[in-house]
Design a protein around this nucleic acid. Structure first.
Length: 882
RNA sequence: GGGAGAUUAGCUCAGCUGGUUCAGAGCACCUGCCUUACAAGCAGGGGGUCACAGGUUCGAACCCUGUAUCUCCCACCA
């Protein structure tokens, strides 16, 4: 069989993913085994795979594949999030392209369009995950707005309302004038930006005097209902009881006094606009000021403003500054930096706006969720996020859960127009409740109206780990939870970005505690943000984000997976560069070629294994086990990059560079000699172990080689192979001895390089030693291409000499040694050792060191001293003999 | 404004309880090699005052105190 010289990733990926699917290796149902569960952070249904997903899902896949091999019942639940605001925005803009305005559509028609779109394009991202190799149980695919899950959301709303934890009220909320909806605090991103602090003069009523206020938002002047100063501010003490005239609209408003105002900022006088600033709102409540909403929901100036009506808020800001300047009312303008809130979804500048919304009281429900993390019941990896989490949970505000959108779970509240409100699961139940609670008999359907708003997306995704298994959990309670939930919940690991620690992770813990009394997951692995080489966040607008699918095409899924994880320490951002993928691809190719070599071996049953191979075999058995233990340890600490790098070096360095080179049959007359059966079998065994260890990182190539290596049963795949076991006892002495042998080999190679001797020319090495044979001699001979490796008790004259540790070696060279060069080399070596000896001796002469340091430290220093002394002696002898 | 973290080779990062696994890894780089698994490779090699300044200690990349720079999170100062 002819094997291709380079690994063909596309073919293997196509073949094996389908094979795994066909044989249901991703599928999980409850059984007697211990479960290992991950629920995917559901990507937005509008999403296309980006580098963040790539990283995130690769980690999950590595974890789930390894768990599967460890014998757990591994279950990875995939799905998508309906992402109400993002999806609605997308659908609105698509409709607009077709010339359809959302406002011209009925709710039902709009939703029909939205579902249409979802059915057509909503599955794209999941298909993309398959390209990467994600071994999700696709039969369990869920969508946060599918029937059962939506029902659970309504159940939760009703339940929390009945428990008095949900309320409705007029509050200052973060308003997105583009999305035309309220958003939660967490959906507002504060960015520093350059602003203008405008000093505007307000005329004091009945005098010729002015009071100057400083504002960054002059367009809200029309909404002013007071000017406020600090009561201790003597500059303004005389203004008690006075009124001022608001410019533009000439409204007379009072001067009020409140110590909220910082006398040191600006002029010490604050214009109060209760409708457009949370602080002003609080002041307004306190001082019973009227509220004038000068802005429309879409960010234009409202009728109530009485001026600039219909103008956009930013255009108005510019214009009003011009107009006030003309009127001589602008004292000065300062350039300042201030933080401006932007909508996470639409990137519009958030407007604080007074409106009627639904809220969830957070204080009480968040306590158990705080404790879960603080006590370590839920572990955050890395731990540094515990602080942030704690801080947030201790300072939570009530959560605004209503959104002025259509795409999402509609709020199950009904109003009768007489001021009565009922929260119920559906219309029929609402009718019953109206009668029970208010004695209102509902005769016809339109008598009561359901709330127009939908719930925040996170109000459904916080139930994700529960409802993907049992949508009826809220109705039935934990005691009557279905088999799936009882079996898989709590899940094991959650892999997600730190950005949504509060949005999502914290809230899942809250919901989990509330409805099952248990945490939703044990470990939360927080990935970093994928950045480009310059440290900029990858984003569409910057155009610095490579297309993951394109990368997969060019480097292979395994290559990209390895590349990503090579540069991603837990919790730190990852500076991604394509060269990592190249490294991943090169590694895959290295593995491929190791396989080609092994596959090409011709076995001869009649020959016995040479000593060089026997020694290599026992060494590698120990090495493999030693490294596997380290790899397992890295996994247990979620040190993914380290686990991968250890695997990488085990395969490339230990297996390919040393083991295979040691056992590879020689060539004679242009033909490879056959290999003995024992060595062949051992080698195949090692390769199989390595394929297993590599499989979580590189699922495709390992499966491909696994099957090319020998005939296998239909279900005998590496994906379900058993994870190798660590040997009970390692031969550490042998491991160390081989390290010394490697050093010897390297030194011989170095001598060749320096003396410009061909690697083909055989050399002889003589060791000065009392012993006459050691275990790896034959292996060394093979690796260093020696004609002989012998021992002597006497110094060898006229040969090239060197030392490893304290042992001296000689290489007799045909060409005579260059005496001058040797003297220089040895003198340098001598000086180094003398200096080293001196520093050790100073340490040992220090009484404080000897009396304070631990005995083993002192012993090791003494050893250093004696070693150095013997080395120096040897070098001096060598110099003398030259 | 509050909090958290970081700063080690050209780059990305390890370095656990202070001491032979203490200055490391991978990549990049340099020098030889198209040697019959692999040039996506092989062999060899050169790179660091561990951000800076003090302190504790017999001993500091590691502990303490400052300083600088960077990143992130939180926050209602117009």
């Amino acid at each position: 069989m002819e094997i291709e010289k380079t690994y063909n990733s596309a073919k293997a990926e196509q073949t094996w993913y389908q094979y795994w699917l066909d044989h249901k290796f991703f599928k999980s149902t409850p059984d007697h085994r211990t479960p290992y569960t991950i629920v995917i952070p559901p990507p937005n249904v509008t999403g296309v795979l980006h580098m963040g997903h790539m990283l995130n899902n690769t980690i999950q896949d590595v974890l789930i594949r390894r768990a599967r091999m460890l014998g757990y019942n591994a279950c990875w639940v995939p799905g998508t999030d309906h992402a109400s605001i993002a999806t609605e925005a997308k659908v609105v803009s698509l409709l607009k392209e077709k010339g359809i305005n959302k406002t011209d559509l009925s709710r039902e028609d709009f939703l029909a369009h939205a579902w249409d779109w979802k059915e057509k394009y909503g599955g794209i991202i999941l298909e993309q995950l398959k390209k990467l190799g994600a071994s999700c149980d696709w039969d369990r695919t869920r969508f946060t707005m599918e029937e059962g899950l939506s029902e659970a959301v309504i159940d939760v709303f009703v339940d929390l309302y009945n428990k008095g934890k949900i309320y409705r009220g007029v509050r200052m909320v973060n308003w997105d004038p583009q999305g035309l909806t309220a958003v939660s605090d967490e959906e507002v991103i504060h960015k520093e930006s350059a602003g203008k602090l405008v000093y505007v003069k307000y005329k004091i009523e009945g005098t010729g005097d002015f009071i100057t206020v400083a504002t960054t938002r002059p367009e809200t002047i029309m909404g002013d209902t007071a000017v406020c100063v600090n009561p201790t501010d003597e500059r303004y003490a005389h203004l008690k009881g006075k009124n001022v005239i608001v410019p533009v609209v000439n409204r007379v408003v009072p001067i009020i006094f409140d110590d909220y105002v910082d006398a040191a900022f600006g002029t010490g006088a604050l214009k109060v606009t209760p409708a457009h600033d949370i602080n002003d709102f609080n002041l307004g409540q306190k001082h019973k000021l009227p509220t004038i909403d000068a802005l429309n929901p879409n960010g234009t100036i409202s009728e109530a403003a009485g001026a600039y009506v219909g103008m956009d808020r930013f255009a108005c800001r510019k214009q009003i500054i011009i107009d006030l300047t003309e009127q001589g009312l602008v004292e000065k303008i300062e350039e300042i930096k201030n933080k401006v809130g932007y909508s996470e979804r639409t990137n519009a500048v958030i407007e604080p706006r007074l409106s009627m919304q639904w809220f969830l009281k957070m204080e009480e429900v968040s306590k158990p969720a705080l404790d879960a993390v603080v006590s370590g019941d839920v572990k955050l990896i890395p731990e540094k996020f515990i602080n942030t989490y704690k801080h947030w949970m201790e300072n939570v505000h009530d959560w605004c859960i209503s959104r002025q959108l259509w795409w999402g779970q509609r709020i199950p509240a009904w109003y009768d127009g007489l001021g009565n409100t009922v929260v119920a699961k559906d219309f029929n139940e609402a009718v019953i409740k109206f009668e029970e609670k208010f004695g209102v008999i509902v005769i016809e359907e339109k008598q009561i109206k359901q709330d127009e708003d939908v719930l925040d997306t996170w109000f459904s995704s916080w139930l994700w780990p529960l409802t993907v298994f049992d949508p009826k959990i809220v109705q039935n309670g934990w005691d009557k939870a279905n088999e799936d939930l009882k079996y898989y919940y709590p899940t094991n690991d959650l892999v997600t970005a730190p950005e949504i620690l509060f949005f999502w992770v914290a809230r899942m813990i809250i919901a989990g505690k509330e409805y099952t009394g248990q945490k939703p997951f044990t470990n939360v692995y927080l990935t970093g943000i994928v950045r480009d080489k310059q440290g900029r966040k990858m984003s569409k607008s910057l155009g610095n984000s490579p297309d993951p699918l394109d990368l997969i095409e060019r480097y292979g899924a395994d290559g990209v997976r390895v590349g990503m994880l090579l540069c991603s320490p837990a919790g730190n951002d990852l500076m991604f560069d394509e060269s990592y993928c190249e490294q991943g691809r090169n590694f895959a190719n290295k593995v491929w070629n190791a396989f080609r070599l092994i596959k090409g071996f011709v076995v001869d049953d009649s020959i016995e294994a040479p000593q060089s191979s026997k020694a290599a075999i026992t060494w590698f058995e120990n090495k493999l086990s030693e490294q596997l233990e380290i790899i397992n340890d890295h996994y247990s600490k979620y040190r993914m990059s380290d686990a991968l790098m250890t695997t990488y070096k085990l395969v490339w360095d230990d297996f390919c560079a040393w083991y295979l080179e040691a056992i590879k049959p020689d060539f004679v007359d242009g033909k490879a000699l056959p290999i003995d059966k024992a060595t062949y079998d051992a080698t195949i065994g090692y390769l199989e172990s390595l394929l297993k260890i590599m499989h979580p990182w590189m699922p495709f190539i390992t499966e491909e080689i696994w099957h090319l290596l020998k005939e296998r049963g239909e279900k005998e795949c590496v994906i379900v192979a058993e994870w190798p076991k660590v040997k009970a006892e390692l031969d550490h002495r042998q491991l160390v001895e081989f390290e010394v042998s490697k050093e010897l080999v390297a030194t011989v190679r170095n001598v060749r390089a320096q003396k410009q001797l061909s690697p083909k020319e055989k050399l002889e090495v003589i060791e000065k030693s009392e012993a006459t044979r050691s275990y790896f001699d034959e292996t060394i001979k093979k690796l260093a291409n020696l004609s002989a490796f012998s021992y002597t008790k006497e110094k060898v004259e006229g040969a090239f000499s060197f030392q490893i540790k304290t042992t001296e070696f000689y290489i007799p060279l045909a060409s005579s040694l260059n005496k001058e060069e040797e003297i220089v080399r040895l003198t340098k070596d001598l000086e180094y050792n003398q200096g080293f000896l001196k520093s050790v001796q100073i340490k040992l002469a220090n009484e404080k060191f000897v009396s304070n340091a631990k005995p083993e430290i002192i012993a090791s220093e003494r050893k250093k001293e004696s070693d150095a002394l013997s080395k120096i002696k040897t070098i001096e002898e060598q110099l003398k003999s030259l």
